[in-house]
Design a protein around this nucleic acid. Structure first.
Length: 452
RNA sequence: GGCGACGUAGCCAAGUGGUCUAAGGCCGAGGUCUGCAAAACCUCUAUUCGGCGGUUCGAAUCCGCCCGUCGCCUCCA
């Protein structure tokens, strides 16, 4: 049984249907990805990998918001078109996420490719008298949707009057939000029944879900900072449109924090993913992300991330050790089962990672007594589900090393030289094997062999 | 001001009423092995879960109050 915490019902929900579609809110293409994007992407990617490993048929969709104020501002600043800005950062997104080893989603729809559907969506809302128009902009009338505020536990009547809400006197009510924004001169625009303009932010996700998945999406995900107003607004417009439940499970990942504060655009304390990849590499970043639960805040600290380099080396050793055909095999069922159980329990990656490390230690410790090949198999499955060490594994698959009789004799010969203290002859054999891609690690006279 | 989350060892972190005298990792202290090399491995490191009460046969886990930190209410993953 696989359980996921649902932010809407504030309770755990079981993933039941064999076919699962996921819609994850993606990035605004106005800048390079930062570690918050990495956290979110890896979290939902691992759910995808895990469900797939359990036989579910997963369709994952992640959008690009490729038209908005920040993109327009950047296009003016850099004197290029908004499209060129978006294209640049979409390319960068894929480059960085690929390097992090994030399994690609099935579709990456763009807001600008969705304009027709968005206009149709708004027209239907209009027909239902859920909207009003001011100077060519169309707004959703929040008071028309009774359940507004349920996801974010907000009472619209008193909580939206806080000091930080920007009073927009044009709107009937502060909570109302734009479905369509009329364009100012020199801004990108699309023709619509309401004149030249562009979509509001929230409507693209509702439209994409409807047109790529249908009325109801199984799992809708995104950062916890999107709960209000973004996801609240998505629910309002989608459910008001067709009366169907919009998402069965709402899944929200926590925020990356740096020096006690949220890493965010407004605070300007971002660490770009591409910079972090350069400093730490994909595997350390991934272990850092796995080490904490996806709904909790993730603390950025170079020391913390680097603290995974030792356990990472253990894992690498465990998959690189060359197994010897002993009669008795090393048991790994317990770790493998615990690993799966942990991920089934609202994606407890921290415990899953601990099982990977424990099994790695067991493998490293038994290569001279037990057949580790079965345990390595399980370890590889665990690594694949968590996306760890995938580059190393791929490299190793290219060179299929095994210990044949000839090599075994060489190894025995070398240890005899060592026993008789003819070290230069022993070292010659070590160098020879190294050329063949085999590294010898001595444990007394019980040497083990690793793929290099 | 409204709403919400969190507070576990020096640090990161798991823990959805009993197997918790609390997983895993880092750091630290010992140790095994050792020609070199690099490791690897083992042992130790919270009788205690922010504080105070309560519920219960039993609480880190549930309830109340207090203290502290953070998030959302503005673009945000």
């Amino acid at each position: 049984m696989i359980k996921i915490y649902d932010s809407y019902s504030k309770d755990y929900k079981e993933v039941i249907t064999k076919s699962i579609n996921m819609y994850v809110c993606g990035i605004t293409t106005s800048d390079y990805c930062h570690l918050g994007h990495a956290f979110s992407s890896v979290s939902f990617e691992i759910l995808d990998r895990f469900l797939t490993s359990k036989g579910f048929n997963v369709t994952r969709i992640q959008n690009f918001t490729d038209v908005d104020d920040k993109i327009i501002a950047k296009s003016i600043e850099e004197k290029i078109s908004a499209e060129e800005v978006s294209e640049k950062y979409i390319d960068a997104f894929f480059q960085d996420m690929d390097e992090l080893g994030v399994k690609r989603a099935n579709h990456y729809p763009k807001a600008t490719d969705e304009i027709y559907n968005i206009i149709e969506f708004i027209k239907k809302l209009e027909e239902k008298n859920l909207t009003y128009s001011i100077n060519g902009s169309i707004y959703f009338r929040v008071s028309k949707f009774a359940k507004y505020g349920k996801l974010s536990s907000r009472d619209i009547n008193n909580s939206l009057s806080g000091t930080r809400v920007n009073e927009n006197l044009d709107k009937e009510s502060v909570g109302d939000f734009a479905l369509w924004k009329s364009s100012k001169p020199d801004e990108p625009y699309w023709d619509s029944p309401w004149g030249k303009g562009r979509p509001g932010w929230h409507i693209e996700c509702s439209s994409m879900v409807l047109n790529t998945i249908g009325d109801t999406v199984d799992i809708h995900g995104g950062g916890i900072d999107l709960i209000f107003p973004h996801h609240e607004n998505e629910i309002a417009q989608s459910e008001a449109l067709n009366g169907k439940k919009f998402a069965n499970i709402w899944m929200h990942n926590g925020m990356v924090k740096i020096q006690g504060e949220k890493m965010s655009k407004s605070l300007g304390n971002l660490i770009k993913l591409k910079d972090a990849l350069e400093i730490f590499g994909a595997d350390l970043l991934r272990m850092w992300i796995l080490s904490s639960h996806y709904r909790k805040p993730l603390l950025y600290d170079e020391k913390i991330i680097n603290s995974f380099s030792k356990p990472l080396n253990r894992i690498k050793d465990a998959i690189n050790l060359i197994p010897i055909a002993y009669e008795k095999k090393l048991e790994s069922k317990k770790e493998f089962d615990q690993f799966n159980l942990a991920l089934s329990n609202d994606l407890n990656t921290s415990v899953a990672l601990s099982q990977i490390i424990s099994l790695s230690k067991k493998i490293n410790n038994s290569n001279n007594e037990l057949d580790i090949s079965f345990a390595q198999n399980n370890l590889n499955k665990m690594l694949e589900i968590t996306g760890l060490c995938q580059n190393i594994k791929n490299e190793n698959n290219d060179k299929d090393i095994f210990i044949d009789e000839e090599i075994e004799q060489l190894l025995e010969k070398r240890n005899n030289y060592r026993k008789s203290k003819e070290f230069s002859k022993a070292d010659e054999i070590r160098d020879e094997l190294l050329k063949q891609g085999i590294e010898i690690v001595d444990n007394g006279f019980n040497s083990v062999w690793k793929k290099v």
